[in-house]
Simulated assay, not measured.
Amino acid sequence: MSIADLPLLSQIKGRLSWLDERQRVIAENVANADTPGYVGRDLNQPTDFAAALRGGPLSMTRTSAMHIAPAGPVARFEAKSSPDSETTLDGNSVVVEEQMLKMAESRMAYDAAIGLYQKSMQMLRLAAKPPGR
């Protein structure tokens, strides 16, 4: 098993992918803030733990060859229509201030995920060290 196959690191990678895609969608919204009739979009929130147990897009890890092989995780994010609090007379529903708040929220979540990744890597390095060094 390589380090990239560890469930924690793959979950962090999935979270970072989601945040990257969300930032792209928010940037599209800001770029179209003056486009008549444009409706802002956003990504659905990632699956929660309860939904994962019911068979969501997260997969279980096989710890024994006797277990049933899990299906590989699928990272598909769909942007849904998500109008902001105001709609202008030309039908545009993007409020730049609200998009900037979403961008800041995504940035904080991205920083938290990167921090968790760095701490996990430090822990793995510590565990891999020979005793006494």
Rank of each mutant, 00 (worst) to 15 (best):
M1A: 12
M1K: 09
S2M: 10
I3C: 10
A4C: 07
D5M: 13
S10Y: 04
G14T: 05
L16R: 04
L16Y: 05
L19D: 03
D20P: 00
D20R: 06
Q23M: 09
A27Q: 05
V30R: 04
A31S: 11
G40P: 01
R41Q: 12
R41V: 01
T47F: 02
A50H: 01
A50T: 05
A52C: 04
L53H: 03
G56L: 05
G56R: 03
L58A: 12
L58H: 10
R62E: 13
T63E: 09
A65R: 01
H67E: 12
A69E: 12
A69K: 07
P70L: 08
G72E: 13
F77Y: 14
S82A: 15
P83M: 14
P83D: 14
D84N: 15
S85D: 13
T87A: 14
L89F: 15
G91R: 14
N92R: 14
S93G: 15
V94Q: 15
V95G: 11
E97H: 11
M100K: 08
M100W: 07
L101I: 11
K102H: 12
M103E: 05
M103D: 02
R107N: 11
R107G: 08
M108K: 02
M108V: 11
D111A: 10
I114L: 08
G115L: 04
Y117V: 00
Q118W: 00
S120G: 07
L124P: 02
A128Y: 00
K129F: 01
P130E: 15
P131F: 01
P131G: 03
G132L: 01
